[in-house]
């Protein structure tokens, strides 16, 4: 330790020093062959859907870094963003592998345009710290997203695709914590001060219009569910409602009474039809990677 530079360039055993970033070992030993009878293109798009949810939502959550109300919360939100980024990397890598078009996680994250992203719109909208929300809105979205994702990942642990099953098993532990974190904050904000309660109510109203979309079954989701590798989101609604009702009841809050944001001619996030927010998010996320073709990072 006395020499700060010891081991700086040794390529010894130290391959794991990037905390939470080396994922080659996360799924070690898992059979990566696509189960027979499963359509590769359909499975690849399904992996993109779940991967894009995680990637785009993680990008939003990371905006809180250095802006949270408390240092402890800064650490917690960064942790959640990192978990989701880790899930996104595994899922995009699986999508690329199954697709077989010589792309990798970075080509998928950085070189696709808006209409090629398959995330639900709730993942991409600004819920704070930008002008589209605040901490309460952020917590409202975390509650909704994590409740949906936990129910989904729990079911996905039984996927016939061993890779998706393994990714889900890892993700369940992470997202269970995310949901718990969100629920605790809903209780605190709803039961704290008069002002925080107002903010919590407003936050739920901001995100609620995007909830129906989470449970609308896309053709790809129907197909993967049929093949036993994926989950039909419509089947998650009852569990979602039950969890939300439990949390809201404990916080003495009502379900928001607001209209849903409709799809555009029947098409929404899963079809690559998004809100105006996604273009700006991607412009920022992708510009360095796109402006230096041939660069290695």
């Amino acid at each position: 330790m006395d020499n700060a530079y010891d081991g700086l360039t040794e390529d010894s055993e130290e391959k794991h020093w990037a905390f939470g970033t080396g994922f080659s070992t996360a799924l070690a030993g898992v059979d990566r062959a696509v189960p027979s009878g499963v359509d590769h293109d359909v499975l690849a798009v399904y992996c993109l859907m779940l991967g894009d949810d995680a990637l785009i939502y993680s990008q939003r959550l990371a905006e809180w870094c250095s802006r949270a109300p408390e240092l402890e919360e800064d650490v917690a939100l960064a942790n959640i963003a990192l978990d989701l980024l880790g899930q996104a990397r595994l899922l995009l890598t699986r999508a690329a592998e199954v697709e077989g078009a010589d792309r990798d996680e970075d080509a998928l994250a950085y070189l696709r345009d808006e209409h090629e992203f398959r995330n639900v719109r709730l993942a991409e909208i600004d819920c704070g710290p930008g002008p589209g929300g605040d901490f309460a809105t952020t917590i409202a979205r975390l509650l909704v997203m994590s409740t949906h994702r936990l129910a989904l990942l729990q079911r996905l642990t039984g996927s016939l695709d061993p890779v998706l099953a393994a990714i889900a098993a890892k993700g369940v532990k992470e997202v269970a914590y995310h949901r718990d974190h969100a629920a605790q904050w809903v209780l605190r904000l709803a039961g704290g001060t008069e002002y925080s309660r107002e903010r919590m109510v407003a936050g739920l109203e901001r995100v609620w219009p995007f909830t129906d979309e989470l449970f609308a079954t896309h053709a790809v989701e129907a197909a993967v569910a049929e093949a036993g590798v994926g989950v039909d989101p419509a089947t998650l609604r009852a569990e979602f409602d039950e969890v939300l009702d439990t949390v809201l009841r404990a916080a003495d809050l009502d379900r928001p009474d607001v209209r849903q944001v409709a799809a555009l001619a029947g098409r929404a996030g899963r079809d690559g039809v998004h809100t105006e927010a996604l273009g700006f998010l991607l412009a920022e996320m992708q510009y360095v990677a796109r402006s230096m073709p041939g660069a290695v990072w």
């Binding site: 905390f19 990637l55 990371a62 960064a78 942790n79 980024l85 990397r89 995009l92 950085y110 230096m292």
Partner: peptide
């Protein structure tokens, strides 16, 4: 640079690093 990191691995490393700094402050 977190929002603009040019690879997902670099984004994860950077976010984890900045998070560590919050921990050091704590």
């Amino acid at each position: 640079w977190i929002s603009r990191a040019p690879s997902l691995r670099r984004k994860a490393i950077l976010l984890a690093k900045v998070q560590d700094e919050a921990g050091h402050g704590l």
